[in-house]
Design a protein around this nucleic acid. Structure first.
Length: 666
RNA sequence: GCCACUGUGGCUUAGUAGGUAGAGCAGCUGAUUUGUAAUCAGCAGGUCGGGGGUUCAAAUCCCUCCAGUGGCUCCA
């Protein structure tokens, strides 16, 4: 699309320069979007927005959401509309109505098609707040929005008999909305609050062209084939038994190989970056979780149990208190700092029934966890060091992957959600950190007992600043997300998408000033005084499970050779080559290459056909020719075939594994 | 936890006007000894997620519990 600007005079419609041209569906002034039929309030220059740019696509989808709402209202006049925003890949509309079944959904879609073909103009109207309140008096959701967002006046959009409260913009008429599909029905709660009314959410998508819609639907189908749950059972990596262990994965021998490789790799990295490996138990008494603050915030999500003698224990939902317990056991000088503990710590969290799913959200998972205790002056460098570990790791595993970096900070409007200090307005005392929402009594100043306390975010601000600085100086592009912080501190999170386009948190780096205070941790500083250390929590993979999901789904199971459970799948052509095949297997195993011989009495074709599901790195076919020449016929992941001397193949694959190559060199 | 949908042998799956389950692959046995995505034949394997109910009769209808999937909420 040309980046040509067009001038529009005050009092003219924005669409004036594009009259009669169907391409432009709206205009853009900077980042502001306007309808074609909206009147310019000053002379200005505009860019045309077309269906083929991102702005236009979003407008189209938003209009499609309106069309959905119009269709629903025609069929169910008693339905109440809430909101219908554009989301990645499409749109949805939240509506108070009986959830439609598959047939009804089809009927709604049909109605949409009919309404679209009637080519209703989509007209923007400006109304006063009073008028709006009147227009939408029967819809409490719209009234809420008008009350919350409208000062004096705002707009509605009208198409036929249908009117929606909306700031727009929209496509000029309903005939622009041609290539769409309703996808699925879900439920939501008004304003995302579980205590509020339940609404029906209908998801759909729309595209400028049928071809793009078809492609989108096809991609969705293909993505389902990449689903790690499907790959995992195909490749025989892990097992779920929903009767015996819901949400609790088991790993087969093949799956365990990948886990071991991941763990071994991270062990080497930990070694290089001076993280000492420790081991802590899988359960602790509940008093520890009370000290750490987990108990109050997460006890509903913990596996808790009480023994007959009255002692209560919990399976660990996190590894930090265990590491703290080790730190506490020795005295530390400022010279020793930082103290860095790592552990492949298996944690257990009672994820609610509707939340568990596959390996992305299991009830037990293993974190490549690390907790670091340091002096305040070491924070920024240590963060950078962890960012380095992360960069090295990601570049080892992925060549080309979309990574999102987030700086998750506190929502200062909700101080009660976090462990923070409270400053006394009466005497000026800075009180020990508290998390208000876990307090049973009203908070009072420890010094003067005044209840006039104000939240003090200074430690949080400091930590946030250091995280931000580390990101900036590491040259990482990131976005900030207020309200996403952990209860004990701000964090850097890394998100990567799975096959179904869902985003999952992997790496996390968190700064924590509070747990050290809660546990009374200290080191001896240069003045021989006790000083509170700062804690850094970090996981590079995040969890081995999630990392495995991303690895599998992104590679379609075709893992780099060093991670492949089956590196070589040897197929002797006939019984005559069985011995030769065994010989090759032994040679490979001697060099640390995983190998198996498929000596079933099947044809080569069939062995390949059946072996493919395991995604071996290489098929090695050996027949009489290979045997005579001391060769193997190598079939790689791209199904290209070449004959190599056995020694040559050995050198190549051993090198490939050692170098942890992502692409096959053969 | 909330809403919707789903739950048939290891896997994929047929079976809606309710009459006590069919198949393919995998497995096992035998034959075949194979040149790069399925050689042939035979055998075995399911009380149709669990429980309760309606009925002369239920995989098929109803209730309930469990689990899975997609969303919502949550995700230390």
């Amino acid at each position: 699309m040309s980046e040509k600007q067009y001038s529009v005079k005050k009092g003219d419609k924005f669409g004036t320069p594009f009259a009669g041209k169907r391409e432009a569906i709206a205009v853009r002034v900077g980042e502001e979007l306007h309808d074609l039929n909206e009147t310019a309030t000053a002379d200005t220059n505009v860019f045309p927005v077309t269906l083929n740019d991102e702005y236009g696509l979003n407008i189209l989808r938003h209009s499609a959401a309106h069309l959905l709402a119009q269709a629903v209202m025609e069929i169910y006049p008693d339905a109440k509309l809430n909101a219908g925003p554009v989301v990645e890949g499409g749109f949805y509309y939240d509506i108070k109505m009986e959830p439609p079944d598959q047939n009804t959904l089809g009927a709604i879609e049909k109605k949409m098609k009919e309404l679209a073909s009637r080519k209703f103009s989509i007209v923007r109207e400006v109304h006063s707040k009073e008028e709006l309140m009147k227009m939408f008096r029967e819809n409490e959701f719209k009234l809420d929005k008008i009350k919350d967002h409208v000062e004096n006046e705002s707009t509605v959009y009208r198409q036929g008999d249908f009117v929606d409260f909306c700031t727009g913009p929209h496509v000029p008429d309903t005939s622009y909305i041609r290539h769409f599909r309703l996808l699925n029905v879900a439920s939501s709660n008004y304003k995302g609050d579980i205590n509020n009314e339940r609404l029906t959410r209908i998801y759909g998508t729309a595209f400028p062209e049928e071809k793009a819609l078809k492609q989108y639907l096809r991609n969705k189908e293909e993505a389902a084939l990449r689903d790690h749950r499907k790959l995992g059972s195909e490749m025989d990596l892990f097992v779920f038994n929903s009767e015996r262990a819901p949400g609790l994965p088991m790993y087969t021998a093949k799956g365990s190989i990948i886990r071991s490789e991941l763990i071994n790799y991270m062990k080497q990295l930990n070694e290089k970056f001076n993280w000492e490996e420790v081991t802590t138990p899988h359960l602790f008494k509940d008093n520890m979780w009370k000290t750490s603050g987990h108990y109050y915030k997460y006890k509903d999500d913990m596996f808790l149990f009480t023994l007959p003698d009255g002692d209560s224990y919990a399976l660990k939902p996190m590894n930090c208190p265990g590491h703290i317990t080790i730190y506490e056991n020795a005295s530390h000088s400022y010279r020793d700092m930082p103290v860095k503990f790592s552990e492949f710590g298996t944690v257990y969290r009672y994820e609610k029934s509707g939340e568990v799913g596959g390996l992305t959200r299991p009830r037990t998972f293993t974190v490549d966890d690390g907790h670091e205790f340091m002096r305040p002056d070491q924070i920024e460098n240590e963060i950078k060091s962890v960012l380095d570990m992360m960069k090295i790791t990601f570049s080892t595993f992925f060549e080309d992957i979309e990574v999102r970096y987030d700086l998750s900070t506190a929502d200062k409007e909700k101080p009660e959600a976090y462990l923070i200090n409270y400053k006394c307005r009466a005497c000026g005392n800075l009180n020990e950190p508290r998390r208000m929402s876990s307090e049973t009594n009203e908070l009072k100043c420890e010094n003067c007992s005044s209840a006039d306390l104000e939240p003090d975010f200074s430690l949080w601000d400091n930590a946030t600043e250091q995280l931000r600085n580390a990101l900036v100086s590491s040259g990482i592009n990131f976005k900030e997300y207020p309200g996403e912080a952990a209860f004990y501190g701000p964090k850097i999170d890394v998100h990567i998408k799975d096959a179904l386009d869902r985003s999952w948190q992997l790496t996390t780096i968190q700064i924590d000033f509070f747990m050290p205070i809660a546990f009374g941790l200290y080191f001896i500083n240069q003045e021989s005084k006790k000083e509170t250390p700062v804690m850094l929590h970090r996981a590079i993979y995040g969890s081995i499970e999630r990392f495995l999901v991303i690895l599998l789904e992104n590679s379609f199971g075709k893992l780099p050779t060093w991670l492949s459970p089956i590196q070589t799948y040897i197929i002797p052509l006939s019984e005559q080559q069985k011995e030769y095949a065994d010989e090759i297997r032994e040679k490979l195993k001697e060099r640390g290459v995983r190998a198996l011989v498929d000596d079933s009495s099947e044809s080569v074709s069939k062995k390949i056909k059946l072996g493919r599901r395991f995604r071996p790195s290489y098929f090695l076919i050996v027949g009489q020719r290979e045997q005579e020449n001391g060769e193997v016929s190598v079939r790689n992941r791209k199904d290209s075939i070449q004959n190599l001397k056995i020694e040559e193949f050995l050198e190549k694959i051993v090198g490939e594994i050692k170098e942890r190559l992502i692409q096959q060199p053969l």
